[in-house]
Structures are given as structure tokens and as C-alpha cells.
Amino acid sequence: MSRPRWFSVRQELTPKRSRFLGVLAFMLPLALWSLFSYIPWLWHPMVKVTAPGDVDWMRAGLLINRHDFDKEVATAQLAHTHAPVGFRANPIYFPAPHAVIRSLYTAFTTAPVLKGDLWLHQSLWMSIQTIFWGFTISSVVGIPLGILCGSFIAISRLTEPFVDFVRYMPAPAFGALMVAIFGIQLEPKIAIIVIGTFFQQVLVVANTVRKVDCALIEAAQTLGSKRRQLVLRVIVPASLPDLYNDTRILLGWAWTYLIVAEVVGVSSGISFFINQQAKYRNFDNVYAAIIIIGILGLTIDQILAFVGHRLFPWKNPRPSRIRAFLGKLFGLRPASAEKPVQLLPQ
């Protein structure tokens, strides 16, 4: 048999190749980043001055435009004075990978500059609280309402036009209003997340619920299910795995709203930390904080996927990478490779 091709339309890859590509997905951007950080003749539009020479306005450690630096060197050579010395560098907003990796640790140990500012772990905790309450409040109301909209056309007609209308209002636009109502602490931020999530959630949930196969509902009716039982015993369990996946996706959206929510009222949380660090030009800390958000989001998503797998044994939602990883680590069988039960000869 010929070797399988890397690129064939809709054909499964071998597990080895698929793992390789998964690693490559992270390695490729990292490699690109490293190239531009460590190879001095790639980009590096700035010069870091090591010795100012006779140029009186320069200091050692100064980061200036390469063009300006070259002009000073040329002037110095013409005037036969000491030319400044320096090496090519990248702008401060483009730290090298090692600096960012180091600051993944040091960001937690950097003491707040101003009194009243928070440490990174405190900021993170605040953000997580905001997200948690915002998303919980939205889900507690939004998911049941969405299920009702998807089940009863009358409720859908009554609710969805208005929900659709509010959905188009950007959540941050409610910022000032929320501060007026809820004060300046966490409450208005939670409210912004609720506004940003809730209206989408109702529509997404209603759409998912509508996808429940009508034949299942009819089958349940012929078995004697009444209205209430149809919703609770058929529609809800039938759409539960998809609802769970919707919730995972919506949680990602809630993280996006977090950033705008946190500048409302008294700025706080992770986005405030990012802004402060950017102000002090600690860009490696900025990157570290952004990467930490990414890691946090991915971890929560993967935990939810792992739990989802256990919750719905009859249906595999999006496969969890953590589960696959743990499975490999401990020699467990990956769930996707589980053999179907031997079928009875007819």
C-alpha cells in the first residue's frame, strides 16, 4: 500500500501525524517569533545604545530608531568625533520568547507599583469571580428561557424579537448606566457580562433546542408523553450535549466581554493589570498576562470537555485533548477508539 497522503480531502490523518500537527500548531508561531527575536538582521528596527560616544543626548541603554542612530554615526564620522556604539534591537513591545517565559513567573512576583494596585494573582482571581458570576447569572435565566423558546413557538414569538433587538446593542454601551445602577465595584462588571452573554445565549439555546429531531417528539407522543414530559423528558435530554457545547463556546465569549467590563467603574482584574503594566512599559508582563488568559481559557474548556465526555456517554462531543493526553500518559484507551459492542448475528 502506498503511504497515505498529507493532504487529501476529508480523510483522517494517522494519529502520529495528527499529534505532530497539533504540536506544530504551537511550535510554528513560536519559531517565527524566535526568528524575529534572535536573528539580528531580521527586522530589528531599533538600536540599543551601549556607549553614547560624543553624542551628548544619548545614554547607554537607550533604545532609538535605527535610522536616527545611523544619522548620528554618520555625523560623528564626518566630524571625526567618537561615534556611538549599539546593537540592533526590537521595539520594546516585541519582547523575545525567553523574556516572556521568564515573566510568566516574574509577573506573579512583580510588586504593584502604586498603593492600591493588585498583584497578578489577585487581579486574576477578581477576573475569574467576575466571569463566574456573570456567566452563572446569565445561564440560570438564559438556558431555561432558551429551552422554552425552542419548545413553544408562542414563547419564542413573545421573546425573540426583543432579544434580537437588544442583542445588537453593544454591551459596553451599557457601562455608564450599569455604574449608575450598581456602583463602581464588581457588580457593574458582572452586569456587563450578563448583558453581553444573556441575549446571545437565549438565541443560541433556542436554536439548538429547535434542532431536536421532530420524530423523537412524535415517538414520545405515541408513548403517552404530555406537554410537560415532552419538554423535560425528550427535548431537554435530547439537546443536552449540544447545549453543553454551546455553553462552552459562550463561555469563551464571556471572556471577551470581561476585557470591556473591567474598564467600567473602578478598573480591576486582569485587563487593569495589563493596562498598568503597559503603562510602565513592562511589555513582557503584558504578554505573560495575555498568555495566562489563553491558558486559563483553554484549561477550563478542556476540563469542561472532559466532564462532558463523562456526562454523555451515549454521545461524544468535541474530543478533549487533555483526556487524550492523560490517556496516553497512563496507557488508558482513548474513548474515540472504543470498539462498538460486538453485534449480534441477526
Partner: peptide
């Protein structure tokens, strides 16, 4: 109206997958 006294078997199985 639908009632269990008239049971139905559909072509598409319609078993509850969960």
C-alpha cells in the same frame, strides 16, 4: 390525538439515543 392505545413503530427507529 396521540395516545398509547395506538402505538407506533417508525421507519427511522426514533429510539431515544440518551
Amino acid at each position: 390525538g396521540p395516545c398509547p392505545e395506538r402505538g407506533m413503530v417508525f421507519q427511522g427507529y426514533t429510539l431515544f439515543p440518551w
